[in-house]
Design a protein around this nucleic acid. Sequence first.
DNA 1: GCCCACTTGGCACGATGTGCCATATTCGCA
DNA 2: TGCGAATATGGCACATCGTGCCAAGTGGGC
Lengths: 234, 234
Amino acid sequence: MPTAPRTTAAHTPARPSLTERRKAETQLEIARTAAALFAERGPGVTADEIARTAGVALRTFYRYFRTKEDAVAPLLAVGVRQWIDDLAEATARPDAPPTRAALEQAARRALTPTDGPAEEALRWTRGLLRAMPGDPALRAVWHRVHHDSEEELQPVLARLTGADPLDVRLAAAAANTAMRVAVEEWAAGDARADGPRGPAELVARGMRALTAGLPGLDGRPDGADGRNAGPGNG
Amino acid sequence: MPTAPRTTAAHTPARPSLTERRKAETQLEIARTAAALFAERGPGVTADEIARTAGVALRTFYRYFRTKEDAVAPLLAVGVRQWIDDLAEATARPDAPPTRAALEQAARRALTPTDGPAEEALRWTRGLLRAMPGDPALRAVWHRVHHDSEEELQPVLARLTGADPLDVRLAAAAANTAMRVAVEEWAAGDARADGPRGPAELVARGMRALTAGLPGLDGRPDGADGRNAGPGNG
DNA sequence: GCCCACTTGGCACGATGTGCCATATTCGCA
DNA sequence: TGCGAATATGGCACATCGTGCCAAGTGGGC
């Protein structure tokens, strides 16, 4: 590692060149533009429109993204990206917490909107999720993002647990499902992102349920077994 | 229900007209053709080629399916379709088994290749899943099928369990994940469809793991806690 | 300052997916 | 059996998608 400056703005390791910084800016600008247009006008938006609004040519747009819907992928992926990176870091240190706790804590951190980019991505994600019922191609991007994260999660979980491959696969799929459902549920409602109904709390609850065993499956619709009409779930 | 004939071939309730039967045949023919072409030549196949091979005009093809990849959806959906219908039937009867068992049994039945159509669909599904790494649009169809089944599963589970909505959603997502992973894992290997490594056995194991609690999450890669190198998993 | 690598943008082109209309076949009914 | 209504099909035009190709502009290393 190179010597890290204290608290300056740009201190990425192996300082990216001007060109690369411009490219990153352009990509983010296209992503934001696409997200805004998809969220407000649905699937009717044209690739050319996204490109011109973002200030690039159509041909350039397709150099950054394979399809017009792909343009929003970087924003949708921020949460899971941070989640997996966080978890991967936990893999490295010898005092790693137990796997269930590590999964839950990392997920909670990834969905806690404190800093700028994460909060912004969460806002875009909510808007995009609400546009997805009317746009299958957009939903496909969301599922692709989670498919990728499911793949990336497996080596991390394999190192953390040492379990056999099928159990690792199931665990990765389950944890990933908890992430996805938490964000979707939050986006469907009106709760603020940092409240008790926010994605961080939802994912913590979901992660516990999916890794330790699903609650509610023993209940029967007619029998009063205490699980059914419980109003308090915090 | 109308009077059901004993063992004749066509005895669908409210006998579909000739036109509707033809349409169903055409749709299935297109689906099979598309599946074969995608499986053997990847994403390069053209919609016009699928249409002509199936014996219809391009315009007609797009009356049956919204996109060329959508053409394989009916085949990919056979398994989950049967699973959910089976489970929904269990909802109706008063002597319904406990939810975990019902989920597992229905899933096992849906993935046990006994009769004709189910076995055929399973073969096509395997071929298509193997083509998916090179064709994102094809994978999107697979995920869309499972997204739909996740939605359809919720009212069924709600009636079965009476749990609160979030738990129902999590349960539906988890069960659905078990189905998906089981089929994917089977398709990736060379095991026969009716053996101990077949999808029916895999889904049973996965469903138990996801509804009752994930195994392997307590293990640590360095510690020998009995979970790690267990060779026998039947 | 100079050259090389790379990003960008314009153009053309095959492919995708849809609206519109003409035709043929089937369904419902007398 | 025959007739009109409904509908499935096919052909055509058209906007959009996504890509290969080439020319021009800009930054990076010397």
